[in-house]
Nucleic acid binder design. Structure first.
Lengths: 245, 245
DNA sequence: CAAAAAGTTTAGTCTCGTCTAAGTTGGTTC
DNA sequence: GAACCAACTTAGACGAGACTAAACTTTTTG
């Protein structure tokens, strides 16, 4: 009973080489870093309220955690101004993103998950899998670059293909585009899109669009079936234009 | 920000039908129940110190948790006398055991794990996987009844083949037996046994045994190689005797 | 069979991560 | 530019789950 594996109380002075020693991160910390990564993707720092909304926590809780994570050197906080990841924080966030997306790909490919049910499972597993397991899943999948929603999978160093797409809402009438990425994690939307055959890889031709953010009508696939897609949803279907159909 | 998904403070009066409402269990609780299941398998109740040793915690911590779990109706505690699982506690422990063993089987079968490295990974994942995922893994494996170590996998209702084996140390000289189960989770021992080809399914013939808990010499497999196995290890190799070789 | 040893529980403290309530700060409006 | 309002932070509390130290049972031993 002399030696027990309890976290040491040593406050771990800021290390020169931050990637060498890895304090075990809690689930919460990982979730905060992921959320902040997602929110500060646009350029601006993430605000306390945005983080609180995304994680379904009170703003006060977020303030508290932000202080702790700043002290740990995982993020930079300008009080009342927002919060940004440090390189170390970003490294961890990208690691979580890799895990999440590879898990989604694996569960869909090998365990019969559909793209609308896979998110929650991956959300829990991403905190529990080892690096070894993740890399083995990656190998089993053939090191994919994209997950089932078309989201890019960071490589182990954090590098990731950040492609620029055009939303279906912006594809002019008459043109053909290929859906490459679906930018929602809402199960109902994904299910609807799946049933409609509007998944990454599908080609659609815009045959009509109503003005004032109205719906877009497309013809898709070889079946030549027609679909009407509301503006909001069309914005989430990220495409590339195809030259000559 | 009005509704937040926080555990209600309601202390949840003891329910008539305990299997209907499932309070979310923490990792810790699941580990305690698993440990107590394992320790009280022999018949006697589990003692505080045994639990503390197994989980690498102080006895005082165990006392505290035991009180909380008794209050929740998951175990029966006679102070200073030990602790036993209630039916509900056992149900949960068996659920964890199913998860653990199916995970081990899956990781070995599909993700290149060896039987000596799989334990830790399963130990973390068993708390994170959903029932859905576990059942899909079971299907992918063909609903196996045993894990890679030969440990029986409880079915979803908690029923489990508890077979009686004879340890290799008790097989008389001259007789042949088939290894069915290896009763250790120490990686070094498993690695040694794996290298020696002494895995479940292997047949060995006892050709010599030294007295006073001395080593057992066996001839194994078609390769007709000879192995000497210390008494302690031989006790962990659980076998069934084979009639005529 | 009493005293010592071993095992267990209680008492009190700590950290993490959350909460609500009560201030602060900074931009917006008149 | 003062007042207001939304966003943010601080203060204080709490529950879970761990710890150490001290008290209390039970068992073992001389």
């Amino acid at each position: 009973m002399t030696s027990r594996s309890q976290r040491p109380t040593t406050p771990s002075a800021p290390s020169i080489s931050p990637t060498v020693f890895h304090e075990p991160l809690t689930r919460s910390v990982e979730d905060y870093l992921k959320a902040i990564y997602r929110l500060s993707g646009v350029g601006q720092p993430a605000s306390t309220n945005e983080i609180a909304d995304l994680l379904d926590l009170s703003a006060a809780s977020v303030s508290g955690m932000v202080r702790r994570l700043s002290d740990q050197g995982l993020l930079a906080h300008a009080p009342y101004r927002g919060v940004e990841l440090t390189p170390e924080g970003r490294r961890i966030a990208l690691r979580m993103l890799r895990r999440h997306r590879l898990l989604e790909a694996y569960l869909v490919e090998f365990l019969g998950y559909s793209w609308d049910t896979v998110h929650d499972e991956a959300e829990r597993l991403e905190h529990a899998v080892s690096d070894t397991l993740i890399e083995r899943m990656a190998v089993a999948l053939g090191n994919p670059r994209f997950d089932p929603h078309g989201d890019p999978i960071p490589d182990p160093d954090g590098a990731m293909a950040e492609l620029v797409y055009t939303s279906l809402a912006e594809i002019p009438v008459g043109e053909t585009a290929e859906i490459r990425r679906v930018d929602t994690s809402q199960a109902e939307r994904l299910r609807f899109l799946g049933h409609s055959g509007l998944t990454p890889g599908t080609r659609v031709t815009v045959i009509e669009r109503q003005p004032f953010r109205g719906p877009t009508k497309v013809r898709s696939g070889v079946a030549a079936s027609e679909q009407v897609i509301g503006h909001e949803l069309a914005l989430q279907l990220l495409c590339v234009r195809i030259e000559a159909p």
